[in-house]
């Protein structure tokens, strides 16, 4: 956890909604090649934190610094989501947000959008470069589907997929933007134990073979404990603990946040 390969660094990130402080001076670091989990009770501000990092919300205070794979450092707080995605941060959503009436392949092809160039003229003239790009994108998108075992669904509409496959498609779509950091918002929500186990393997595989660093929000403690190398715990917008899964399990603050305080008689 050396300073040099830290790729996401939020410093005193704060988000206010009127008088409500949803995220309060969050300091969070993610290093290259890690799997980091962000946990906390419902309403702790985890998703708001994600929204700030990915540009969906403009944080009230604080800075977010990313280090791109080429070593360039960038402050991204308040940047629009498409810009953030372009830098190489991709995310999935807590409540699945697929393009329902598009096919599975097209969903992933849209993920390739930022890595494509064709504009209006390209679309209208359909010159050689555009045609080649289009063919390449179809091929690449199919490869992403294969990695997530979705190739048998290629031409199905996204809304007709089984639930687990929809979750995987969201990950495939996010991966298609070629991120160096993937933010997963409750990827295992609504999955059965077997699907969760498969997801566990899949996330490790993405990290190992694709070299994508992963930051995830999750409520399934088994998954969090087996998967993540470091855990951050939030409650009421504040960071209350951080450390390895072992440390977190026995951290008094965490136990208090989840189970409540013991009352001395």
């Amino acid at each position: 956890m050396s300073e040099s390969n830290c790729i996401l660094d939020t410093r005193a990130l704060t988000m206010d909604f009127g008088g409500l402080r949803a995220v309060d001076a969050m300091n969070l670091k993610v290093c290259e090649g890690e799997i980091v989990a962000l946990i906390g009770p419902n309403g702790a501000g985890k998703t708001t934190f994600f929204n700030c990092v990915t540009g969906m919300l403009k944080p009230s205070l604080g800075t977010i610094v990313i280090t791109m794979p080429d070593g360039q450092e960038k402050e991204i707080q308040g940047k629009r989501p498409n810009v953030v995605t372009n830098y190489g941060l991709a995310r999935t959503f807590q409540n699945i947000r697929l393009f329902q009436n598009l096919t599975v392949l097209e969903n992933v092809m849209i993920g390739r959008h930022t890595r494509m160039k064709a504009g209006i003229l390209g679309a209208v003239l359909r010159n050689k470069a555009t045609k080649e790009e289009e063919e390449r994108v179809i091929y690449e998108s199919y490869e992403y589907l294969k990695k997530l075992h979705l190739e048998q669904h290629v031409n199905e509409l996204a809304k007709n997929l089984p639930y687990g496959a929809q979750r995987r498609l969201e990950i495939a779509r996010a991966m298609a933007t070629e991120p160096f950091l993937l933010l997963l918002d409750e990827p295992a929500a609504g999955m059965n134990p077997q699907e969760t186990r498969e997801l566990d393997n899949l996330i490790v595989k993405i990290r190992d073979t694709e070299k994508i660093t992963i930051l995830l929000i999750e409520h399934d403690m088994n998954l969090v404990m087996s998967l993540s190398e470091r855990i951050y715990v939030m409650d009421y917008g504040k960071l209350i603990a951080q450390g390895t899964p072992e440390e977190i399990k026995h951290h008094p603050e965490v136990i208090k946040a989840y189970l409540g305080e013991e009352v001395d008689a």
Binding site: L98, N101, T114, A118
Partner: peptide, 20 residues
């Protein structure tokens, strides 16, 4: 085309298309 797909993506889900 890339442009047409972007339009349809916007129709389907504006938030998700921004994230993409």
């Amino acid at each position: 085309s890339r442009l047409g797909r972007a339009w349809v993506a916007m129709r389907e889900d504006e938030v998700a298309s921004r994230a993409m």
